[in-house]
């Protein structure tokens, strides 16, 4: 086998491997999508039905039963609201830790990350009681605050990793030109980090969109996002797989489309710092 052939074979094998992984990961989503067009009987049939006459009945039922627009709006407000709030806090934090590290910076970063290791259910009762006492149960404000706190460590870490790779000389040059710390962040750091910030924001939005634990525990009717809508289609007594699939498809659709348009930034963000 010539070197050229070996290279070709390697490319084909790598491609095949990547496609296999991608298909395995995508299969549950594909199955959910086609199940949403089946009847309940077809959805549970064994062996599974592959060829069937698709119908939109399940989507009609979901539209009739749930206020999709309200749930979707709640998801949009909480995901985007918490991401913006988290970025407002995280950008100055990451800036100061990246460019003016103190003795305890590393400890602070590790401590922030350690908060992610605490199981959410461990703080459910105190947070629930706080929300009750401040009248925040079933409000989007509560979810925005919780989501912000939940994603803040990841956002700070991602931005910190990016900021610390920026050449310090650029900031020194700006300072020589009389830039204040505010100017440094707004006029120098932010324009250089648009890619990193947008990919971080995207990741945060996706994490908030998919969050179910707090959404289910802190909301009822007014602030319930799409994850709570999906949960309402599981039934203890009755067949529900097709309708549940339709609800899930509708819940996933906006974020999948959004992610599709932003995939370049997402991949860039997830891989920054990977190759130096």
């Amino acid at each position: 086998m010539t070197l050229n052939q070996q290279r070709k074979l390697k490319t084909i094998l790598t491609g095949l491997f990547a496609w296999t992984i991608a298909l395995v990961l995508f299969f549950p989503i594909f199955w959910m999508f086609i199940t949403s067009f089946k009847t309940e009987l077809q959805a549970i049939s064994i062996p599974p039905t592959l060829f069937f006459e698709p119908n939109l009945d399940n989507f009609r039922v979901v539209q009739e039963r749930s206020d999709y627009i309200q749930h979707a709006w709640n998801s949009v407000v909480t995901s985007f609201g918490s991401t913006i709030l988290a970025l407002i806090i995280a950008i100055p934090a990451a800036y100061s830790m990246a460019f003016f590290p103190g003795k305890r910076t590393k400890d602070i970063l590790l401590w922030m990350l350690s908060t992610k290791m605490l199981p959410a259910v461990g703080v459910l009762v105190p947070i629930y009681i706080l929300c009750r006492d401040y009248g925040l149960l079933d409000t989007k404000t509560a979810l925005v605050i919780i989501f912000t706190l939940m994603n803040l460590p990841i956002i700070v870490w991602m931005l910190f990793s990016y900021f610390k790779d920026l050449p310090k000389e650029i900031l020194e040059a700006a300072r020589m030109d009389g830039a204040t710390p505010w100017d440094e962040v707004v006029k120098v750091v932010l324009p250089l980090s648009v890619g990193a910030i947008s990919s971080t924001a995207l990741l945060s939005i996706v994490l908030c969109w998919n969050e179910a634990f707090w959404s289910l525990n802190l909301t009822a009717s007014d602030a319930a996002p799409l994850t709570a809508m999906i949960a309402s289609y599981s039934s203890p007594e009755g067949l529900f797989w097709a309708k549940l699939s339709a609800a899930s498809t509708l819940a996933c659709a906006p974020i999948v489309i959004f992610g599709w348009f932003c995939q370049k930034q997402l991949v860039q963000g997830l891989t920054f710092g990977a190759v130096k």
């Binding site: 039963r65 289910l216 525990n217 009822a220 009717s221 319930a224 709570a228 949960a231 309402s232 599981s234 203890p236």
Partner: peptide
């Protein structure tokens, strides 16, 4: 106003 939940979640809530 209705809030429909999965049985386990309903019990917990």
């Amino acid at each position: 106003k209705w809030v429909t939940l999965e049985e386990g979640v309903l019990r917990q809530n």
